[in-house]
């Protein structure tokens, strides 16, 4: 574990806490893409299959349980909670995310570290995570003004993988044969997808104005 990876995991945890806070405090999920939340639940389920078979550390196990439980709880909340589900922007959240699932799964069949179910699902979860934010970014562009908590949620979500890139650079420099091409390349693409959001988020912060993404 290094400071970059710890910062990344804590930022990721913070993004989930901000999202839970937004939904719990406002009893609303307006501006949140259910499709992105479903993709994240799939990412964690596909990636943490080794939860019960490979023990890495107490920290690793606890974080995996927290990520799986929170992502499923958010999907449940947006689909079934009587009060919250009414505020879901169903007509705005129209990104065809099944193409993202299919495309990344095929890519994982072709590009993986080993042709085993667990490795294919791990690569699938890495590729899917890279594009999972797309329905959310599209929804933000369509819904015009973005409420603060939603903006912070997306910002921390993008920032966490940027910390992981620093972690991979650090591990590459300090560990003799450290190479994680699938995670590294996918992580760079993932962080790149947030580039325009980061730009508009910075502008809104500098001008102290409401975050607005151009349609």
């Amino acid at each position: 574990m290094n400071i970059f990876r710890l910062a990344g995991d804590m930022t990721h945890l913070l993004s989930i806490i901000v999202l839970l806070l937004k939904i719990y405090a406002t009893k609303s999920c307006s501006g949140i893409s259910l499709k992105t939340q479903e993709l994240y639940a799939l990412v964690f389920l596909a990636r943490y299959l080794d939860l019960f078979t490979d023990f890495i550390s107490v920290y690793n196990t606890i974080m995996k349980v927290v990520f799986i439980a929170s992502s499923l709880a958010i999907v449940w909340c947006m689909r079934l909670h009587p009060l919250v589900k009414r505020s879901y922007d169903k007509e705005l959240d129209t990104f065809r995310h099944y193409f993202l699932i299919g495309g990344t799964f095929v890519l994982a069949l072709v590009l993986n570290e080993k042709f085993t179910l667990q490795e294919i699902l791990w690569a699938f979860s890495i590729y899917l995570e890279a594009v999972a934010i797309l329905p959310q970014l599209v929804l933000l562009q369509r819904s015009g003004n973005v409420d603060n908590l939603t903006g912070q949620y997306v910002f921390f979500l993008g920032a966490y993988r940027a910390f992981y890139i620093l972690n991979w650079i650090y591990r590459y420099l300090t560990e003799p044969r450290f190479t994680r091409w699938i995670a590294c390349v996918s992580g760079i693409v993932q962080t790149g997808i947030y580039a325009d959001f980061f730009y508009y988020y910075f502008i809104s912060w500098k001008n102290n104005s409401k975050l607005k993404l151009p349609a």
Binding site: D54, M63, K64, E113, K114, T116, R180
Partner: peptide, 10 residues
């Protein structure tokens, strides 16, 4: 065959 990388990251 070659072993895959250890999945020690979240």
């Amino acid at each position: 065959g070659h072993s895959s990388s250890p999945k020690d990251e979240l």
